[in-house]
Design a protein around this nucleic acid. Sequence first.
DNA 1: ACGTCATTCAACCGATAGGTTGACAATTCG
DNA 2: CGAATTGTCAACCTATCGGTTGAATGACGT
Lengths: 118, 118
Amino acid sequence: MVELQSAHLDQVFHALSDPTRRGMLRTLAGGERSISDLAAPFAMTLAGASKHLRMLEEARLVRREKRGRTHFCRLEPRALAEADEWLAFYRHFWSARLDALEAELLKPEPKALERKKK
Amino acid sequence: MVELQSAHLDQVFHALSDPTRRGMLRTLAGGERSISDLAAPFAMTLAGASKHLRMLEEARLVRREKRGRTHFCRLEPRALAEADEWLAFYRHFWSARLDALEAELLKPEPKALERKKK
DNA sequence: ACGTCATTCAACCGATAGGTTGACAATTCG
DNA sequence: CGAATTGTCAACCTATCGGTTGAATGACGT
């Protein structure tokens, strides 16, 4: 858990470092979208947008499924979760409260949490 | 809260996309360090490391204080918190449990939390 | 079969990243 | 003062980024 596939984190964080790509992820938060749908909000050629999508896909932030002639994309939250795990290490620097709760979540006994949920 | 200074997020995520810089942040999690201290673990000239530090500083992930001839760096958690806030929007995609707890944290009444902590 | 729609590919472009080297600046020590 | 320590600056190099254009691919509708 400590190494966290550094090379993949490189890809993920780099993918997140562009506002176009972050915008696309935001759109995908609303559900499956075609490439053209994702490209539409941006003043950019489709080929340009296509490249961004490919980076998101290679970073495994997005999954693509081709149905007929259109490619549908969906958010792949796993990679975001990895970025989040990396950040979690630092969480206590800015928020002792959230950190405490999270520590509880990750402890070997999820009893307290299950009580809360059920 | 919705726009989150996109240009700054660009810088932050880009800064995090390099393993050398992430390594430096990890070192800084242990407290204040000099530039040479931060550079030491990496097979790289000091000038190279110095450039990485400057990016971290410009992304406001690190603060620098010059005392005598040595520059001391400290972690600046605020920028990491911004990245975390951005990710928070997507948290429910991979963890309904954590999301629920966090929502509780951010609600106007922190009563339940205080009971847990004290 | 033909045209059109959705998307990629290949080539190109200027800007930036990530690294090096060598010279410079500032501070401390003898 | 002079030498060593700590770090930056400037110039350079190669690779990648973020974008364009124009042609190619593949599936659909008629």
